[in-house]
């Protein structure tokens, strides 16, 4: 009986660890805050739930299993609250979910995420600076020098 519960607990822990890593990869890879919330929900419910269920099987009927059940209940109640508050705050801040307004999500011509937009703009601004002659850079430097000199004189 104990061997059977050990096998079941080990399998549940293995599946839970898999889901936990999948959710973490989603948190790292998803393009948007709202999609990342979805991935965090996976690791909070499936991953943590299966891990704790497996550990309860390993512990058997004891106080340890009760403590694990308390942790699981707290996580299951607080994770949706945190996600809801986070989504509400993000929407109130003015963030738009990727995919709103018939934007293409997958394939060529896809709507890039907020990070990719920032990267593209920085690359576009960086490249002409490299191609241009050194004179404007020097002039910028001189302008900075003059500005700093003005600040010094003002202060």
């Amino acid at each position: 009986m104990s061997a059977l519960s050990e096998v079941i607990g080990s399998m549940l822990i293995a599946v839970g660890a898999f889901f936990y890593v999948v959710g973490a990869i989603g948190i790292y890879r998803m393009p948007d805050v709202f999609t990342r919330m979805h991935a965090a929900g996976i690791s909070d419910t499936a991953g943590a739930g299966l891990l704790i269920a497996g550990m309860m099987f390993l512990a058997g009927f004891s106080l340890v299993a009760v403590k694990l059940a308390i942790i699981m209940g707290v996580i299951l109640f607080t994770s949706p609250i945190a996600t809801h508050a986070l989504a509400q705050a993000a929407l109130h801040e003015g963030l738009e979910p990727v995919g709103v307004g018939n934007k293409i999500l997958i394939g060529p011509g896809a709507h890039p995420g907020p990070e990719k937009i920032g990267k593209a703009t920085t690359k576009k601004t960086r490249k002409p600076a490299k191609r241009a002659a050194r004179k404007p850079a020097k002039s910028k430097a001189t302008k900075r020098k003059t500005a700093s000199a003005k600040r010094r004189t003002r202060s």
Binding site: A24, V33, A40, D44, S79
Partner: peptide, 11 residues
């Protein structure tokens, strides 16, 4: 954004 960091902190 700040919300990414808060979400990561929760995770």
């Amino acid at each position: 954004t700040v919300f990414d960091r808060v979400l990561a902190a929760n995770a």
